[in-house]
Design a binder for these strands. Structure first.
Lengths: 232, 232
DNA sequence: CGCGGCTTTGATGTTCATCAAGTAAAGTGG
DNA sequence: CCACTTTACTTGATGAACATCAAAGCCGCG
């Protein structure tokens, strides 16, 4: 089993506590700490399954996840890749009874789990907490939608350039990085075929815009890559 | 000028009051009614301009609007078409200082305008109001994202079929309707060329799936159309 | 009536998915 | 640890889907 429930409550040391729960009073935080659970997931294991009933409020403490949508025809679309503070795992939990997306760990990841009823009860009584949640969710949704629009607009090389820059500037935050996605996953992310992802990468390599060694990618000419991401 | 400020406060008769403000007390509603403004827009006029500072909370009382995103290269993408209760005009107002999208009336429309600071002050004190806002915004964003994913996945005929069904089932709610969008706007909506929108429509007409007479469209074989929207 | 924008159809070239085949890498059982 | 199997990756060839270009018809409006 890929899931491990950690034994000890460590809210005191949690760097995310202030971010998620800065507007809760001491009593409320204590209540959360008492019932919260921490779960650990190996690379590739599913944290949230599309279609299941939403009973828990889940946020990423550590690792990287992909947000994917399963289509009725068996195909799937990768919506975004998210980091711990991206708040992405809680999308749609306030508007739906079941998850519209799955969340899958793409590197070993740790999540914190809180009963949804408790969060909702805080939501209905603590305005500052809810307003904060509102702002975060609004920002998350905005970013996802803008990213999705951009990927829709570009053609293959532009899409791949856009994604590489997103990994370098945002997700990994280094111009040389190990891609946490397979070529097939990149294809699902960009919405093109796996072969054409590879062809775009090969072309960038031939033109010395990037270096490739397996999953390791180094961006060598970021300006050209950025230009392709803007116009391609 | 296409914009008209209506003189009288009619909150008492407003059917939307309960939907948007059911969790505000009488004093809060009165305050909103005193400062709120109503504006009327002709077909084609812009209600919200992308890039401008967000100073007002705007919602659609009557009419139909399109939500569009202006790209840096001058092109634009139509994100969705919204009805009065869709809450679409308030996307991203809680996470950004400027609008990321424009909202344009596609039929004569009426909006209600409230000072943003007042809404935010309610948001920070009235938890039920904010929680309601959170749920609505979550639902709106979810719908837009799911729609966007669907349009991304399908090819031209599927996209057009999907949009026709959306107009028939949701926006106009009749199987015979007058399209409120030009072919060019449909193209921006689907993310394909205008010519290919026309070709798809013509093909549906030839196969007697729909009838076309200018902007008037009648869906004659909804099952086939739905099948194309699912698989095409 | 004539101009400009919107719509439509056909022809052409580009982009892209798909198919096929081969290589590399990673996991599996003896 | 090695042979074997499977999965991921890569490249080329082909055809389908689509954008673009061109030209003509249509419609509303001054």
């Amino acid at each position: 089993m890929s899931e491990v429930i950690l034994p000890h409550c460590q809210c005191e040391n949690c760097q995310l506590r202030d971010l998620f729960f800065k507007h809760l009073d001491k009593g409320e935080v204590t209540r959360i700490c008492t019932i919260r659970k921490e779960r650990s997931f190996t690379e590739g294991s599913t944290i949230i399954i599309q279609g299941e009933t939403i009973k828990e409020f889940v946020y990423l403490k550590d690792g990287l996840v992909k947000l994917v949508h399963q289509n009725s025809d068996g195909s799937q679309q990768l919506i975004t890749v998210a980091r711990p503070l991206d708040f992405v795992s809680v999308m749609s939990v306030f508007s739906s009874v079941t998850y519209n997306y799955s969340v899958v760990a793409i590197v070993p990841s740790v999540v914190c789990v809180i009963d949804m009823q408790l969060i909702k009860s805080f939501g209905k009584t603590n305005a500052k907490f809810t307003f904060d949640l509102l702002q975060r969710m609004s920002l998350t949704n905005d970013n996802i939608l803008l990213e999705s629009l951009e990927l829709k607009r570009l053609q293959v090389k532009g899409k791949v350039a856009f994604l590489l820059i997103r990994f370098a500037d945002y997700i990994i935050q280094k111009d040389e990085f190990e891609l946490p996605l397979s070529r097939k996953e990149l294809a699902e992310y960009a919405g093109v075929s796996t072969e054409n992802i590879i062809r775009a990468l090969s072309e960038f390599r031939k033109e010395k815009i990037i270096s490739i060694s397996g999953k390791t990618i180094e961006i060598r000419d970021k300006e050209r890559l950025a230009m392709i991401a803007r116009l391609g």
